[in-house]
Design a binder for these strands. Sequence first.
DNA 1: ACCTGAACACCGTTCAAGT
DNA 2: ACCTGAACACCGTTCAAGT
Lengths: 238, 238
Amino acid sequence: MAEQAETLHRTPLSRERVLRAAVALADEAGIESLSMRNLAQDLGVVPMALYKHVANKDELLDGMIDVVVGEIRAPEPGTDWKRAVRGRILSAREVLQRHPWAPLAIESRNMATPAILAYLDSTIGTFRAGGFTVDLTHHVMHAMGSRILGFSQELFDADRRAGRSGRADTDPPTALPPEIAARFPHVAEIAMAASHDDESVLGQGCDDQFEFEFALDLLLDGIERLHRHGWASARRPG
Amino acid sequence: MAEQAETLHRTPLSRERVLRAAVALADEAGIESLSMRNLAQDLGVVPMALYKHVANKDELLDGMIDVVVGEIRAPEPGTDWKRAVRGRILSAREVLQRHPWAPLAIESRNMATPAILAYLDSTIGTFRAGGFTVDLTHHVMHAMGSRILGFSQELFDADRRAGRSGRADTDPPTALPPEIAARFPHVAEIAMAASHDDESVLGQGCDDQFEFEFALDLLLDGIERLHRHGWASARRPG
DNA sequence: ACCTGAACACCGTTCAAGT
DNA sequence: ACCTGAACACCGTTCAAGT
């Protein structure tokens, strides 16, 4: 009975339970609310208890990143390299949209976690299986950059912040303040065109998913062209 | 005399002096050493004195970003859009290499500062002057993402961290630990090829500048193709 | 041996007391 | 009116005292 009470008291802490609670806290309250103290409180535990399962906060973040990257679907077998890479990156993007704090966390940690290395290894394998040379694969991976993990790489990624991961895919009209529009006329022109989404230019506003796939296909099409033309180091990617 | 002593005591603080000292501190000691307290000490001033010139730390960071973005060279007039954009992005990259903390700072601030808006406006203007439609320019700007500001967008950007902005362009051999190489054979294959830089594949190791220009030209060439073929929203970027 | 409260060395920022 | 020291509400982490 004493033993039962001991083990069941609040379900025993484990590294996995710590990491899952940390991811949930960051998802719901924003990464800036993730402190060792807040996390301990969520788990009904004294702060120092966490240090039995993670060495420090950096290692906690690494563990959280691995949880997130582990959610990315493996590519369907038997598809050609382009569909396989494209599908996997779009799956990665879906995952990151559930965890908007993750891109910044990954970028600020600067060493690859095991899950990320496994992801990269598998993606490199897809290119190699598609007949890419080692060196073209190398440059292509660099060229994809963090987009390979589904990062939008927008200069300003509104949804990447705090708790608000919602708010549909299409931006609200959000007209520029007039003095901004006057100082930056080219920015204003684009903002105006993108917000008149009913009649005009595109048939849609500034649709994140469209922009992401536009950029992704621009890269994949360029990569396909290099591959087909047998690109090798002497030539520039033109 | 009392007046002179008052005004000359330590050269009076100003917003500009605060921002320049903050940039210097972040450059030299790393962004994680930039605290209001450390900055005040560098300036020989009590911490609260800073709040006369910046509202809070976020505004300090915005100001630092504007200082950095202000260092980017304007494009040379009279060149075609592709050379103009390419040259400006490479100039931006040089600037960011002097301030390795800047990319992460910009990404985490999520609203455009005036200097960044001016930069974007001018770059959009270059595309428009080159004959790009408003909507193609729009998508192209999104596709460039933060690369437009010279970000490398590598998944792990070793030099972006702390004080160490030096260490040549070419990675040292840095052989993978054998157990990593065994678990991630495709990663190992590429790492090996890139480090045998004398004989092999590329005639160079993993050269950051080469990788950056490879990716940049991949994008610019793809963009040029869309523009020449009169891309419009109905078609996908193929 | 394990767990944990208090303490340490920091933060950014408020506020009231000094000039 | 201006300036600034002390204080407040936090951090991550160490450490020694308790069981």
